[in-house]
Design a binder for these strands. Sequence first.
DNA 1: GTCTATACCTTGATAGAC
DNA 2: GTCTATCAAGGTATAGAC
Lengths: 210, 210
Amino acid sequence: MLSTMTNATSTTGDTAGGTARRAPETVQRLIDAAADAFADKGFHATTTRDIAARAGLSPAGVYVHFASKEDLLFQLSHQGHTAALELVQAARERAASPRDQVAAIVSDFARWHAEHFRTARIVQYEFPHLSPEHRDQVRAQRKQIDAVVRQVLAAGVRAGDFEVPDVPGTTLALLSMCIDVARWYEPGTRRTPEAIGTAYGELAQRLVRP
Amino acid sequence: MLSTMTNATSTTGDTAGGTARRAPETVQRLIDAAADAFADKGFHATTTRDIAARAGLSPAGVYVHFASKEDLLFQLSHQGHTAALELVQAARERAASPRDQVAAIVSDFARWHAEHFRTARIVQYEFPHLSPEHRDQVRAQRKQIDAVVRQVLAAGVRAGDFEVPDVPGTTLALLSMCIDVARWYEPGTRRTPEAIGTAYGELAQRLVRP
DNA sequence: GTCTATACCTTGATAGAC
DNA sequence: GTCTATCAAGGTATAGAC
């Protein structure tokens, strides 16, 4: 799937069959360090020295595992989108009716953007700083997330459970609502991530009811 | 109101009574140049050299009018938030009933985030890069926008036109929906800014109906 | 109020020993 | 696979002439 990955990072691709055996531990530590740094200061304001230090490596140590700072951002974005997609798919499978599916998906998606708001901010807002090739890959992941919601809305309309004049537009609006949580949420916000999720799930149901 | 403005930029404050007479033309040209540059590359990736060049000045010319690059970001953010607030207030005054007011506000706010998506992105997503003092000032402007929507929702509930279990939460969700337009919109998107506005206004009405 | 020139610093990334 | 040392480039901001 990630056939255009750089050599420097192809060792991360052990999700396929577990053939890779070369210590991916440092790689993940670097990704986590980058996530912290990018979340604190933004992609461009973060130095590779800072990332290396947070991971307990020398500045040069980064380049053994990643081709560039941008490559680090890509791996991080890719992991984040994968997590989000799996979350949304799991929510759909967990619920039976379109009504419950919409609530489950929106609830979990919003909650994820609150709980992981640091990662989510990078994933959503540093996207323009990816290279064109990496942007394309992430865009493909985003389309998959969008497709899940759109299909559920369409199913609900077909079943007569929903009244949605504009399915693609409403899909986008629902996802927007959740994604924007990452922008405004911070620890100590009035509501917990769980409460935000529940509230947004109910808002979604109100929006699509006939 | 902007009493804590830096000296370097206080000449911009001629909105009060028109007492300032010192060519604010170059100042605005610099702000516009910064807007273009920040939108293209982000705040931190933009160089002061680039801003100066776009405004037709030497690198040093910037510092006659602004104390720092961050100061430029603040002026730009402040102008953007002022425009957005005025837009929202105008929409409320234009409509009579809470139902029409919600539609007008959400429609215009969403449309603004599409039409001015370059400015809006800076305004919304470079916010963390403002200095603490400047962040406070912008936060105050945001609260004013939020208050307008919240009051309209509350009025609609009182009048029995709306059913909104959670007024502050729904206010936030409606604004979120609109703000996120700036993230995904780009010229050539399926729908025009006007169509997006209309669609979002209708979504808002669906969301709050009893 | 704008320029040229530049100080002074940090950046991303590489070379080569171990 | 990690280090120390370092490069070339480019960063913000200032000094001082005009």
